[in-house]
Design a protein around this nucleic acid. Structure first.
Length: 262
DNA sequence: ATGGTAGAGCATCTA
């Protein structure tokens, strides 16, 4: 089972590259973030032509998340479970694919430590844990994939000094992420490469950061133990960040020795 | 070549 997550930074702008990448990378399940489109504009037919069922949750100009699957897709849920304070944005969608409860998340950026959006970010992460508690169990196969907009530790960023006083690295954010993971989600990527620096999934478009290998690891496929125990591979597809009109994020791919089939 | 925003949408916000 090959599961990928990719913040595409506008699916309209990225569709040619996404289609090309699906054919080349052959993922079974894909979580997309920042589609930046309304549901009515989502190119479900184009994905279907490539063998993927899909669900999308988007409102227009900003955020927007989707799940693609070629191994079956059922029981979709958009946003947080109804008992939870609703999200004002379209940042979460869930579905069951081949017996795995899959969630695509686009955690709020936070903007600044003194910005209301930072409070929203922390609240959103608290609600993500409540959503998992209310809808599934760490005893079954679960993946929560997406752009978390948090670097778990300083090994996940190119220069800790460059991020002093900024979002993505603050202690409250890291604790909020840890609280989500404490529900029962494992970062198999870092478990596989515990001491390897320079493994990033996002590079700022500005100032040639990608070419200088100055990035952050903020996109993860987090898995519950039944799936994480079957982890066979974790990688960042850096090639997808090169060339013409790339997203500022690269796809993150995780593989599990788990039976593929609807 | 030896550097270096991008997207949405039309002023400016978001990342």
């Amino acid at each position: 089972m090959r599961i990928a997550t990719w913040n595409v930074n506008s699916l309209n702008a990225r569709m040619p590259r996404v289609e090309e990448w699906l054919i080349q990378a052959q993922p079974d399940v894909v979580c997309l973030q920042e589609t930046k489109m309304a549901d009515a504009a989502f190119p479900a037919l184009a994905f279907e032509a490539l063998g993927y069922e899909s669900v999308h949750h988007g409102s227009g100009r900003w955020n927007g998340v989707a799940i693609l699957s070629r191994v079956g897709l059922s029981d979709p849920m958009v946003g947080f479970e109804p008992s939870i304070e609703p999200d004002t944005d379209t940042r979460l969608i869930s579905a069951t694919c081949a017996g795995i409860r899959v969630t695509s998340v686009y955690v709020p950026n936070g903007r600044g430590l003194d910005d209301p959006h930072y409070v929203y970010k922390l609240s959103w992460l608290k609600r993500l844990r409540e959503h998992l508690e209310a809808t599934t169990s760490p005893e079954v196969p679960v993946v929560v994939c997406g752009d978390y907009n948090i670097a778990p530790t300083d090994i996940d960023i190119w220069d800790p000094a460059a991020f002093a006083g900024m979002t993505h690295v603050s202690q409250p954010e890291r604790e909020a992420l840890q609280n989500v993971m404490d529900w029962g989600l494992i970062d198999t990527f870092r478990a596989r490469y515990p001491d390897t620096p320079g493994l990033y999934s996002y590079w700022d478009y500005t100032a040639g950061h990608f070419h200088k290998r100055e990035g952050m690891r903020i996109d993860f496929c987090l898995a519950s133990a039944p799936l994480a125990n079957l982890s066979t591979l974790d990688l960042v597809d850096r090639n997808a960040r090169k060339g013409t009109k790339p997203s500022d994020h690269a796809p993150v791919i995780a593989e599990y020795n788990y039976p593929v089939g609807p």
